[in-house]
Design a protein around this nucleic acid. Structure first.
Lengths: 250, 250
DNA sequence: ACACATATGTGTGCTAACGCACATAACGTG
DNA sequence: CACGTTATGTGCGTTAGCACACATATGTGT
């Protein structure tokens, strides 16, 4: 799997400020008042992100921020070349590249596309201009920052205390919600680095979930068969994070 | 140890914008330009915080934010009544109550005084007014938000991968730096909840560090005997977090 | 159909940390 | 100074997850 290499970004048509809140639209942008959204529109460009693309490396300059529509971007903290861990997940509820908003030019984490799809891209320069206007975007990015902070904190506790199986269930559900699909391509090898455990551990946990008819998987393709059942197997962290994420957009 | 109960906050004299950057002064406030600091001064009040005071409970309204001088405030994420974990540490480099700055009124974590000392207190209302001015405070709080985000992320990885002994060493060093003292009162019971491990685990790790003449402890009082040696025992996370923390103030 | 790369399953120790149950030690108060 | 309280040490069985070494399966391309 190509976890390195820069994205091949293709231009696509722009979406409307569609106010339907459904999957496929970035909810942060969608929450903006029409006039403010219109002001941003010329600076936004829809791009497609592909699983495995690396948008930022730790320490590298952030050229663009991304508002995912139906894609997912993982924020990864690295300890060494061999051990790293996902600390946060950015989907249609948020934006990748928050550092720019916080007056920092460099990324402290790796941003890895964890689910293919489209995102709205904006240059860092535009973010600096627009977000300094004290308007709705400014406010929403503030609230999102808090939401992300909460997500990361909760994940931290989760990673410390919970077993692999519930954590895997949580992670699959979070991915499902952001992709808006019950089926998505992901290998157990990939999952193991996200969860910070060995592949064999994922193998066991996944086998258990499959035996319970909650998921199905085969050669890098995962299907959620019984969502409710999977939620029951997941730790509370799933519900906690979901509530926080859904609530911040008012 | 009284981990519950609200702080008994005593009024003290105000500090100056002393530009010496040493311990005992909140470095965030100290970095502000003089005129802006003067504008804030009337809204700041020095209070003393005592080990065990709880400043916020999860979900509770944040009435005041705190800029520690030589005190430390722990941000704690709770899973259940019995298992919780420190996700972040706020000392003279920052501010507790960042949620207010991010347009959120309620705390998502518990804020527990982990080291006695003084702090500058400001009402949430004042923060909302002042931080919306797009001045230096606004910018610094943004940069601090990013710094805290990085700290929390790094701790998350650390908690996941590192052994108790290096984590304990890191934690003691971080505490030392913020308190500006080599000796401070802390029981192993307390440490165990901060690190999210059993008390017995802390006991073993602490005994090992003491055997190596790096620290000394007795009945809830800890002394750092050999700081360099302790740094060598700590994981890299200490250096990483310290660098980030020191750098953000330009 | 074949080879080949990739994805997943399994087994065998090993270890850090857990849970529990006590033992010891230091301090504080009446 | 005796006593209770609080802090710390220790032992024992259990367990989740580790590291390593393979075995098996399921695609893909020629």
């Amino acid at each position: 799997m190509g976890l390195s290499g820069v994205a091949g970004l293709h231009t696509m048509s722009l979406l409307k400020n569609s106010n339907n809140g459904g999957p496929g639209v970035n909810r942060l942008l969608d929450t903006l008042p029409k006039n403010e959204y219109k002001r941003l529109l010329p600076k936004l460009k829809t791009v497609s992100l592909v699983l495995g693309d690396v948008l930022y490396e730790p320490g590298a300059v952030i050229k663009y921020v991304y508002f995912p529509n139906d894609s997912i971007i993982s924020l990864i903290s690295e300890l060494s070349d061999t051990s790293w861990l996902e600390v946060g997940m950015v989907g249609n509820e948020g934006m990748a590249g928050l550092a720019v908003f916080m007056d920092v030019s460099f990324s402290s984490t790796r941003a890895l596309v964890q689910g293919s799809g489209t995102a709205m891209r904006m240059s860092s320069a535009a973010v600096r201009t627009e977000a300094n206007r004290l308007g709705s975007l400014h406010r929403l990015l503030h609230r999102y920052s808090h939401s992300l902070l909460t997500q990361i904190s909760q994940s931290s506790v989760c990673n410390r205390f919970h077993l692999v199986e519930p954590r895997l269930a949580r992670w699959l559900l979070m991915t499902r919600d952001r992709l808006g699909a019950e089926e998505f391509p992901l290998t157990q090898e990939f999952l193991s680095s996200m969860l910070g455990v060995r592949r064999e551990g994922v193998s066991k946990a996944a086998a258990a979930l499959q035996a319970g008819k909650l998921i199905h998987y085969s050669r890098g393709m995962i299907t959620i068969v019984n969502r409710r059942g999977l939620e029951a197997k997941a730790c509370q962290c799933y519900a906690i994070i979901k509530a926080e994420t859904d609530a911040y957009l008012n």
